[in-house]
Design a protein around this nucleic acid. Sequence first.
DNA 1: CAATCTAGATAAGTTCAACTTATCTTTGGA
DNA 2: TCCAAAGATAAGTTGAACTTATCTAGATTG
Lengths: 308, 308
Amino acid sequence: MATLPSLKGLQAFEAAARAGSFVAAAEELSISAAAVSQLIRTVEEQMGRKLFHRVNRRVVLTEAGVEMLPRLTMAFQEIGSVSREVSGGAFRPRLVVSVPPSMAMGWLSQRLSGFVASHGAVDISLRGDDDPVPFDRELIDIRLSYGPHYREHPTEDIVRDAVYPVCAPALSGAIKRDDLVGLPLIHTDWGPTGASFPSWRNWFEAAGIDPGRSARRGLSANSSRAALDLAISGLGVALAQGIYCAQALEDGRLVRPVLRTAELRQPYCLTIPERSARRDVVAAFRDWLIEECLRSVESPALRSHDSS
Amino acid sequence: MATLPSLKGLQAFEAAARAGSFVAAAEELSISAAAVSQLIRTVEEQMGRKLFHRVNRRVVLTEAGVEMLPRLTMAFQEIGSVSREVSGGAFRPRLVVSVPPSMAMGWLSQRLSGFVASHGAVDISLRGDDDPVPFDRELIDIRLSYGPHYREHPTEDIVRDAVYPVCAPALSGAIKRDDLVGLPLIHTDWGPTGASFPSWRNWFEAAGIDPGRSARRGLSANSSRAALDLAISGLGVALAQGIYCAQALEDGRLVRPVLRTAELRQPYCLTIPERSARRDVVAAFRDWLIEECLRSVESPALRSHDSS
DNA sequence: CAATCTAGATAAGTTCAACTTATCTTTGGA
DNA sequence: TCCAAAGATAAGTTGAACTTATCTAGATTG
């Protein structure tokens, strides 16, 4: 079918299928039952397929009808709700933000109130997703991801972060050697997103240190957040990412026992689909988010120790 | 606004907003530009809000218009694609299945081909989600979850699984004592879904054994699948769930060094929203899924050792 | 077992939303 | 400076959508 069937016809079908009766649908749409009957007949002709079985004086959905109903219901609900929101003066811009799960849980959710406070009425939906994210299906306005995926949308590099050994001040005081050999290490399982993140093994290699067996020893955590918490508890030395540990370094819960860093192989990237780019809220959020990223990564606590 | 604005008007708005021009929209809709202009004016009157700024001989979306566009685009695309699929004879029923992430990755994805083979033309979308899942927004047809959530939809208990100590045959042979004290244990971080799953601590308590320090010792894995792999590698004894380890027990990659089990506190539950229940595909998938669950949990490998 | 009720189909006529053509205004660009 | 092109508007036309009225045939009931 080159062109769509009649929208009103589809609407009548949707109401009738949902209600299970033409009369009920007619009432819902404030038209006569005869109109519903005709609309649906027209749609069936246009689509070349029966949507209802007429059994006696009942109607029962055909397989094709059953298949259409939920999708049409969702579509018409969306049309209805967006129309109602916009026409009833008090619509709030909706902003769908997607970031890697680890950021959604900690870093970003802590800072989000800052944006809301400065920007006012916005409905923000914060999603923690692994790549790839379905921009169109979920109407995502802005996606922060590790590395450039999404060549099909405008993407900009924001910042290239690094990982640092960090530990509790108490543990740091007890460190004699500065190559970390023999210390309890906290390993982070970065998950699928961070498959290419540096491990302790990489860090030792880059530093030219043979860690012996100690590169395998110690605790492991399945999130960067958990790894940081373990480090703060003094259980060992974690390889923490700048953006996540800047705060703890600043307020002294963590220190950097040695200064060597390992840069991440990929920058963090911001992807904003064309359709969202012109929205004011999106532009404002983009600026704010970049500012926050840079502030976190280039925090004085990290800078002052920078050892390149 | 009590009732929706004109659907054709919204459609015209959507096309014009997307194309950035009334003339282009008119061409797309195969009507005259004057018609587009009038339709949009009508919608604006019905909604009591301008959707376009008329600047010279250009049109620019207002904030309200920008807000509406993506959601309308998605809705009309959905209407178009469902209509096209159903009217163009070869529509395939679409089945959206949601299960806990651990099942989506392993157990279910391995078995799914069986259903497709027996049932024929179906488009299955398999999602790994944590509870709660958005039934309506994602049009989920069937959800398998641990424990009964979703009182608002018809839900049935399927099976109550249990966890068992399992290990590689080689390791089993080396075991002298049958209380597992002193053996390397593999701890599983069940994630948010399984917050109430039995841990080694629980298992020892239930068995009336004081594990001493050994309940904390050993490896940990952040998924049941990873824990099983570690156990198969002979690195320790894992507490594995029946449904996941039945296969490995049957083909001898794993054995049960001791027979005590710990029942899960909740049964696995199947939730099917009203709208999906009447679909043939859904009913068929439900039957198949229940069958597969029972077969896995009540596999001979588990049964023959059952120690209640 | 009529008598009645109700859901849906159909016919015929009506109406108004949607569409066309024609004309006007503005302006961006050659 | 003049034209081409985009949008607004007016006036008239068309047909999709709607109404009322009537028909059919299962359900329901006294």
